[in-house]
Design a protein around this nucleic acid. Structure first.
Lengths: 229, 229
DNA sequence: CGCAAGTATTCTGCATACAGAATTTTGTTT
DNA sequence: AAACAAAATTCTGTATGCAGAATACTTGCG
């Protein structure tokens, strides 16, 4: 193939920056985080370093290091002599987090209307359209993932890295409960209606409207998920 | 003494909850975090596990685990083969963080006016009065610490744990730069004037006013510290 | 002298061993 | 049978060893 035969020029290498080496630490963090979010490691589960290490094919040392990272993210808790336990979020934890998430998304909405390019807004619209497809087909898991990706995309449009990173941490904590708690036709419809409004406000670069919708969306999310805690 | 001679009753033990054992992990995290915040480990410093472990009197394994925690907090960065480096924040990082912090403190101000007890508000007033003492005496480091403690105290009055924890992470990142960048009589006076207004708004439980002041305070902080980056 | 290549040394990432703590199992008493 | 104590086993937290990667130093060449 042409791309294989063409010699790489040094400029091409430079323009892509240094080659990023995947680290075992990052891989373990991501895997265990996914296992928590997807419910494979349920809230309250005590993590057994030996078994989990065997399951992941790694020794205890890098696993322990990765678990400490996830403790800092708030997904795990440590007790001396008992190791790491998947954190159980109380109703208050969830409510507190949604309040803060709403506040952060509100800010992101304002900043996004200010900073987003037209092409970036189009991408969000595309995500939204695909999500609506999944809604029509009643394919819930892809719908949910697209839903979360739209939120993340709007955060990226804020062009504020601190905001994105803080939002990611809180969002990760709530993924599981939001997937479980948003089930049901009325709740689904409610969330979808909010999303329609969001994308319209973003396209109109109506900062106040988008901010208000995003913030209120989180408050409504509380009403939708509270039964599942 | 009477307190030593009086036998502990089982109810007294129970009512205080389980005895919290200090862990080495937490101690290392706190120490290294302090060393970063206080400038002993300067931005850009590559941490040498062997030397740092000797300095702290711990072996490499718990030190590595603690460093992973601090990486997750954003105070350190990892590169494969180079270990942990104290993160250098760009002007954009600082600005981004202050924007988010301002928003969070604005939210905290509103919640604090709603949730704080009179006695808690009095405590903030006392912190403020002690800070003003330090200002009169031109004793800058205690002044600064009290200043930061007032912010943290207001966050606690929000009674929102997620908000407190997110705020703590961002605040820690900015402590050093704020200490360095806020030096000078005009800047100091500007910050103090904001604080006077904050405490008055809190005492008056004027949520909108406190929220606005806290948010604006961060924007002014940007103007004060930007030269130091 | 400056630069590149080769060599030596140090450091990081991970595996494994060990001691003490926690948990489970077994035995004894009521 | 239930409760308690003792013994056995397992697990966590940490120390240490090892291999490969990164860095520092030395040597040789133009």
């Amino acid at each position: 193939m042409a791309s294989e035969a063409a010699p790489l020029l040094i400029d091409e290498i430079d323009s892509r920056g240094p080659i990023v080496r995947p680290t075992l630490h990052d891989a373990i963090v991501a895997r265990v985080r996914d296992m928590i979010i997807e419910g494979e490691l349920a809230p309250g589960t005590r993590l057994h370093e030996g078994n989990l290490g065997k399951m992941l094919g790694v020794s205890r040392t890098p696993l322990r290091e990765a678990l400490k990272f996830l403790v800092s993210e708030g997904l795990l808790e440590l007790s001396p002599g008992r190791g790491a336990v998947v954190r159980q979020f109380t109703a208050k934890d969830v409510h507190d987090s949604l309040i803060v998430l709403g506040n952060l998304e509100g800010l992101a909405g304002r900043l996004a209307c200010e900073h987003a390019t037209e092409s970036e807004i189009r991408e969000v619209r595309q995500l939204h359209d695909r999500m609506m497809d999944m809604y029509e087909k009643r394919d819930r898991l892809p719908y949910f993932k697209l839903n979360q990706n739209i939120h993340s995309a709007i955060l990226r449009l804020s062009k504020n890295e601190a905001l994105v990173s803080v939002h990611n941490v809180l969002q990760a904590r709530l993924k599981r409960i939001r997937y479980i708690g948003n089930e049901g036709p009325e709740k689904w419809a409610g969330a979808v209606a909010d999303h329609v409004e969001m994308v319209e406000a973003l396209e109109a670069r109506d900062a106040e409207r988008l901010s208000t919708i995003l913030n209120a969306h989180m408050l409504k999310t509380w009403e939708r998920v509270r039964h599942a805690i």
